[in-house]
Write a protein that binds this DNA or RNA. Structure first.
Lengths: 200, 200
DNA sequence: CCTCAAGTGAACACACTGTCCATATATTTC
DNA sequence: GAAATATATGGACAGTGTGTTCACTTGAGG
């Protein structure tokens, strides 16, 4: 969108706060997508944005918090959950979309690295739960509750647990890649849960 | 077991290789359990073990690889999967044990941090899969295959997917702590999968 | 126009990494 | 047992990133 990958030199003196904020987030997002958390440093972001490291430290409490903010500023999430009236169809579609996103886009590298960084970065951990995972959990839980009212899911089932058994299973293969994320995997997740794996 | 938390000074000259190796791993494990990955550095391990940093770099290709090796040298894993003949009982027992381990011991802090570090440490990632996750997956898959032969699980079910829906769900709550790991959670995981969540 | 808030550059101490030596000692070989 | 080899050691080095302090300069609001 703007210039990028070019270290910027600027004169001394104050600049408009909003402009600095925007340019820093833009630079952070671009650097994160380009190099991943391995090459992501506050120093590089500052150089890329032509801003002072002092300013960055002032606004973002940690490297991870800056990275997450940069990610959001570059990747505009839509956050929609289709409702066809059939929970199996909706869950499968949503999980297939998630699998596709993680397998075929930069998000598949960046999201695991952010979760990884969050394990030793309390600020990032809190921000990630609040701004990323919690809203997405909520959408899925709502869809499951609607399915309960339609009689497609038993009323005594804990929807939160189901979320962990669907998306959590995907994150498992994403973070500990013993096995790959595939479309068949996405379909099997839904089928196993709805039908059950036990003999009747 | 031996001395610990005390930086060691030693004279110049070669020492027996096995002894150095043991002391380094011991120090690495203790430091990891004491401070977590946040405070875990090669330099500290070297100082604690009274060894040279050069030696550490020679044997372990990355900070994460050293940490994992240290973890194994301090925490002696048993790696058993009981077989009572009832898959529901066995799975519940095993997952409850896992939940307990992660909730009530240092492993609950160290394992997530190792997985987190593995996202930007290829050496650790490979070592973790090979030495930790793969063997544990295999045990669970074997148990599920036995259950299939007993007629307790449908033959067309992919056991690997089931593993992700049980343990992966736990790792999800461990790595992204929106919700806590509880005994009820462990039981719900098994019940949901065996019975199914759909209306008959 | 004047004051205050805020970004900027420069410099600093600090920690960790990764690497280079020369030296000293253990291990192996003869 | 002595020589040859292998390997750990201390010390030093440059490179990078962090976090902070300081004086300076400029934008924004009254």
């Amino acid at each position: 969108m703007t210039q990028s990958a070019e270290p910027v030199r600027r004169g001394r003196g104050r600049r408009p706060t909003d402009q600095v904020r925007r340019e820093v987030l833009q630079a952070a997002g671009e650097l994160l997508l380009a190099e991943g958390m391995g090459g992501f440093t506050i120093e590089k972001v500052a150089a890329l944005a032509g801003a002072s490291r002092v300013t960055l430290h002032k606004w973002w409490p940690s490297k991870g918090a800056l990275a997450l903010a940069g990610y959001f500023s570059v990747v505009g999430h839509t956050l929609a959950f289709p409702d066809t009236g059939d929970i199996a169809t909706d869950l499968t579609a949503q999980i297939r979309a998630f699998v596709h996103l993680m397998r075929d886009t930069r998000a598949g590298h960046v999201i695991p690295e952010l979760i990884g960084q969050a394990q030793t970065d309390a600020e990032l951990s809190a921000a990630y739960r609040e701004r990323y995972s919690a809203p997405r959990r909520a959408l899925a839980v709502e869809a499951l509750e609607r399915a309960k009212q339609r009689g497609q899911v038993r009323a005594d089932v804990d929807s939160e647990v189901v979320v962990d058994q669907l998306w959590g299973a995907c994150y498992h293969r994403l973070l500990i890649p013993d096995l790959p994320l595939t479309d068949e995997f996405a379909e099997a997740l839904v089928a196993n849960l709805l039908t059950g794996i036990g003999r009747p």
